[in-house]
Write a protein that binds this DNA or RNA. Structure first.
Lengths: 135, 135
DNA sequence: TTACATTTGCAACTCTGTTGCATAAAGAAT
DNA sequence: ATTCTTTATGCAACAGAGTTGCAAATGTAA
């Protein structure tokens, strides 16, 4: 499916900036930061980029993940997420050498038994080490 | 052990600000943010607090964890961490209601088998949901 | 109590993220 | 194609987090 159609399907207007952002996030399973995205987009206003990413997250096109350095990153959703409901819980791998953040879609997520009184609605796991490119 | 002695043992000078910071972090297993710590400390300069926390982390007195909102939090180390080497890998629980971050010292950490080429040196897991106080 | 090294506080700065408002662009109707 | 309405964009201004350099204050050991 092309980016414009995906955007339209989520009820958002199709603009050149939005299409470009979605196209850049498409190919690999990498979560990109604001700083990485901005130069790839040409002359887009940084505030616009913030708003596009937030809108995309709200309608379920992308998900947000905060890396080990506290940097916010965005990656494409793959499991038919919808507005205000993300279905794509998965592990992330953060390379300590190149700082790339990978979405590990096919790894199982362990369930943890919590102490009495605590109830879990989800979990966020970031595994760190060396990625295939840096090993 | 009292705070002053712990600070001295790590090779840092014992100052009133440092003792106060360590005393506040002592009791519970909670990871506190900068914003939470500052008002508890009286008239301490915010830059000094940044430096104290960074120094404490370097020598293994406290560890840093970034919560689900991207807020940096600090908590006491409990497993004889040393300078530049932390031994206290453990899960964290982030309450989505009161936003408290708990160190879950006694829960087992699952090991994940990664794709070929990837090697893990550690992982950071934050479980979110409702804590015992909010349930 | 003097002297040295370290810590603190201040000023200034960068980076990240948000809000309000005027302008520009998209989408639908004519 | 032209107009109209809604939504998106760009700009300015701001707030918060975090860092660095430097002078003044404090801790520690002699």
């Amino acid at each position: 499916m092309n980016a414009a159609q995906e955007i339209k399907d989520k009820g958002l207007k199709v603009t050149t900036s939005r299409v470009k952002v979605l196209d850049i996030l498409q190919p690999d399973g990498l979560a990109l930061s604001h700083m990485e995205l901005e130069p790839m987009l040409g002359k887009i206003d940084r505030i616009t980029l913030y708003r596009i990413l937030n809108d995309f997250e709200e309608v379920g096109l992308v998900h947000k993940v905060i890396d080990l350095d506290g940097v916010t990153r965005f990656a494409l959703c793959k499991h038919n997420c919808t507005t205000h409901h993300h279905n794509d819980n998965h592990l992330h791998f953060n390379c300590t050498a190149c700082h790339k953040m990978y979405c590990m879609d096919n790894l199982p997520i362990a369930t943890v038994s919590l102490p009495k009184g605590f109830t879990a609605t989800g979990q966020s796991t970031i595994i760190y080490g060396l990625c295939s490119g840096c090993n």
